[in-house]
Write a protein that binds this DNA or RNA. Structure first.
Length: 288
DNA sequence: ATACGTATCT
DNA sequence: AAGATACGTA
């Protein structure tokens, strides 16, 4: 049974906040403006301009948000670290490592050590959003910055989905696919739009005025997707790690193969070499 | 008294 | 897991 309470301005609010896509989007927007580290509940609340939200609600959400983000960053660092070790081991500095990590940043410049670099300025001018009077949308199970997610999430591939083929160009991550949550960011540029997302409408709630357009389709990857980043992810290397490993191995085949990769059959190698007009193979030399 | 962050509870 | 609440601290 739903419990409703009366907001300070007279609107009817649900007892428990549903962090819908729209709400979360505003939240993230506010956090981005303030900087993830500097964002505090009161300021976020202010920027969000949403009724029926208390500072406590925001604080709680912020806690979860930071926690999720921390996990993601940790994984990213893990991937970067893996590649760095290999580079040190090989003594060469070739590029093509995990997620194109350069100077501690990923290619989008989002994942450098947070406290020092702070975060890039917001991509757009802050506009005070119109007030939202109700929270009646599907809960959102998507965490993190749209901008961060795009670079961080790829190695958290849901276990129930087939991994993307490494032979193909890397498709945009599935959680971006056609989601109203990231409108127009990819839909125009990326032909690859996996349709794995479960989409449905949020049913209108009787008796509650719909302040926001009720046509918001909610995206809800199942709870095994990227909220449980433990067992499935740990058992299977992340996509990013695999990409890094393959890229690395191709670049420097003389190094020991990482765990899990098998060397090609000699016959196959010889055939391939012949195909390329190489008939003599010099004796193997050790890397000094 | 108030806001914040974290831990804990439901 | 998500969101609320309790609690210690500044």
């Amino acid at each position: 049974m739903n419990i409703y309470i009366y907001c300070w301005d007279g609107c009817v609010c649900e007892h428990k906040v549903d962090w819908t896509a729209e709400l979360h989007r505003r939240f993230v927007e506010a956090v981005e403006q303030l900087g993830v580290e500097k964002a505090v509940p009161s300021r976020i609340l202010e920027l969000m301009g949403v009724h029926c939200l208390t500072r406590h609600n925001v604080a709680s959400h912020l806690q979860k948000y930071r926690s999720h983000r921390k996990h993601l960053l940790a994984r990213e660092a893990e991937a970067a670290n893996w590649t760095r070790k290999r580079h040190i081991y090989g003594g060469l500095d070739t590029t093509g490592g995990a997620g194109n990590i350069i100077n501690g940043r990923n290619k989008n410049g989002w994942l450098a050590p947070a406290p020092t670099l702070g975060f890039p300025p917001p991509p757009h001018v802050a506009v005070t959003p119109p007030p939202v009077h109700n929270l009646h949308f599907r809960p959102l199970h998507v965490w993190g910055h749209p901008t961060v997610d795009h670079s961080v999430m790829p190695h958290v591939w849901p276990k129930h989905l087939p991994p993307p083929s490494t032979a193909m160009a890397t498709p945009p991550p599935f959680w971006v696919s056609d989601s109203p949550y990231w409108p127009r960011i990819h839909s125009g540029t990326a032909p690859y739009l996996p349709t794995v997302a479960t989409r449905f409408r949020a049913p209108p709630v009787a008796g509650i005025p719909q302040a926001l357009h009720p046509h918001h389709t909610m995206y809800k990857p199942d709870q095994h997707g990227f909220s449980s980043a433990r067992a499935p992810v740990d058992l299977h290397p992340s996509k990013e790690s695999v990409d890094a490993a393959i890229g690395d191995v191709l670049t420097r085949p003389w190094l020991p193969l990482p765990l899990g990769l098998k060397p090609p059959a000699v016959d196959g190698v010889m055939t391939e070499l012949h195909r390329h007009g190489v008939s003599e193979v010099p004796p193997t030399t050790s890397c000094a």
